[in-house]
Every structure is written in C-alpha cells, then in structure tokens.
Design a protein around this nucleic acid. Structure first.
Lengths: 150, 150
DNA sequence: ACAATACAGTACCGATATAGTCCTATATAG
DNA sequence: CTATATAGGACTATATCGGTACTGTATTGT
C-alpha cells in the first residue's frame, strides 16, 4: 500500500489544524478532541513533533503547543520524518546477501533515487498548503521544490 | 519510514533481474537462488505478479516464468500495485469521525493528490530502467511521466 | 507555599499485518 | 505414467503499530 502509519496521518491532521491559527497554542486535550483521537495519542504525537522542533511546547497551567515556525515554512517531509524517521522506500540496503549472483543489488541505488524524488514531492508541500481546504494543485504537481537534493 | 513491504522489494528485484533477459524463462527456484530468498517466497511473489499479468507462467516440466511484456513497458507502479494493491499514502478515508470539528477531513483530498504524484513518479520508471546498473537520473528526476493523471 | 494544570519521558500491552512455509491440485514434457 | 513446475490456498511465528498508563517536572494562580 505504500502507506504512512496512522500516527503520521494523525500528526499531519493535527499540525494542519494548528496551522490555521499559527499564533494560538492548543493543549493536547483540545487537539485530541478536534482530530478525534484519544488524549494520550494526541499527546504522544505532539511530543514526537516537539522533539523535532516542529512545534514549541509550553508547560504549566495554561500550557500547550504551538507551531514553532510559520506554516509555510514547515514541509510535509519534515512532519513525516519526525514521525517515522528518514524517508526511504526500502530497507534493502542493510542485509547483505541479497542478490547473491550479482556483486551487489543493482536496484538499490535506483530505489534511493526514487526515495529522493518522493522526498522532494513531500518537501514541496507545506502545512499552509495542507491547511487549505483544497490544496493548490501546483504545489504538488510541478517540481518546484524549494530545496534541491544535495 | 514510508516503506514498501519486503515482498515488494523482492518483487522488483526479481522482475528487474528477469528484465535483463526478457525472452528467457526462469523457474521459481532459479529466481530464488539469484535473489537470495526461499523458493516458497519467490514462488509466492511470482504468483502474485502473474495474476496481474506482469509475467507469463508456463506450467509443466520445463515451465517457469517470463516477462509478459517488454521491460520498458512495465512500470514500477504496476509492480507495486500488483504486490500491495492500490497506491495510497493514507487510509484516512474510511473511518468517518476523524476530524470531528470539521465537516470532513480537510487534508484528505490533499493526501490523494500526493498519492497521485508519487504514483506518477513510480509510473515514470520502467523495469528496463531498474535493470540498468545506474538508472538514468532523468527517468526519476524530471516529471516526464508518460501518463498524465486524469 | 501549595495546589492545580499540562507537558516529558518511558514502559507496557493488545491487535494487526507481514514474512515465510507448507500442502494439495493441476498441467506439461518425455 | 512419472517427474517437474506452477496454482491456489491455509497456516504460523514474529514484528510492528496503535493505544494507554504511570511517574516526573515545570509553570501558574491562589
């Protein structure tokens, strides 16, 4: 299915929601209610993205979370990576011994390129885009990625 | 991780291997040895892609499998879909009740667009590309996809 | 100072999906 | 008619994921 985990899905929903009022801070409970997940789950997700500095946490009585940057400065790639680790299509790499006949798996490098391409796509979409009811097709269609792969 | 399943990974390795001699047919055992997986596993994978007519099966004593089409006529998207079903980033859609506050999950449509973009990327790479030791960067870099989304 | 609130970190289960194996049936070649 | 090889399942062990709970710490307000 080539799918993102449910947590990641929730994560983007949460951050997209927060992106609509970037200045405001929300408690985990508020966020949980809005997105429709348990408070513990929302809390867990917020902690994960906080550790990667996508949101800023405020402790104490009227604490909560708030986006750490402007919505158009946070890309989906960052969110996905915060939730699932480095974006990679296959874990082919580690286990040696694959492709016994050849001196190394020929397709490996190709998967890496593909992973980069997908990362670029994800990188081209910001939370601001996601927060819009209907995303600008150009944002995902064209390869106008802001960051070029190294 | 946004990853493909291991089976899918094997599947592309298998088909890429077969793409180097498109005319030749290989038994499951041969394929298994080449790619370095168990015979049963290779067999399972070959059956899966056979059902989607990516390879043609030949039964009987000197049977085996052979690509059903020319390597440059089989895209990675087809292989991935044969192995994992429809390409989709999230399964967000099904469960109603997500995003309680809104009349519908706002990000859903956006994920679908992204899925399409990724599908296009996958669609732009053929088995012939994968069979090459180093894939032509243009094949994945540019958005020269053969098929435009509807 | 103290109580209430809300985040930080971690540890722990239960459900689900995946990888891998095996068994029976069928088709083909010699 | 026998050996080989695929077709199509079922089955199982394991890993991962989703979800929850518990303990600790920081901040605010009385």
């Amino acid at each position: 299915m080539l799918r993102l985990s449910k947590l990641t899905d929730y994560g983007t929903a949460i951050l997209s929601f927060m992106a609509r009022n970037p200045e405001q801070s929300y408690s985990a409970a508020e966020v949980a209610q809005t997105v429709g997940v348990g408070v513990s789950t929302a809390s867990k997700i917020l902690k994960m993205v906080a550790r990667k500095d996508l949101v800023q946490s405020i402790r104490g009585t009227h604490g909560g979370y708030r986006l750490a940057r402007a919505p158009d400065e946070i890309s989906l790639a960052e969110v996905v990576e915060a939730m699932e680790g480095p974006i990679g299509i296959t874990e082919c790499g580690r286990r040696a011994g694959l492709c016994a006949r050849e001196d190394g798996c020929r397709v490996r490098g190709n998967w890496q390129r593909l992973g980069l391409a997908i990362r670029r796509t994800l990188d081209g979409v910001s939370l601001a885009d996601m927060a819009r009811p209907e995303m600008d097709p150009e944002a995902v269609d064209g390869n106008r990625s802001r960051h070029r792969a190294p």
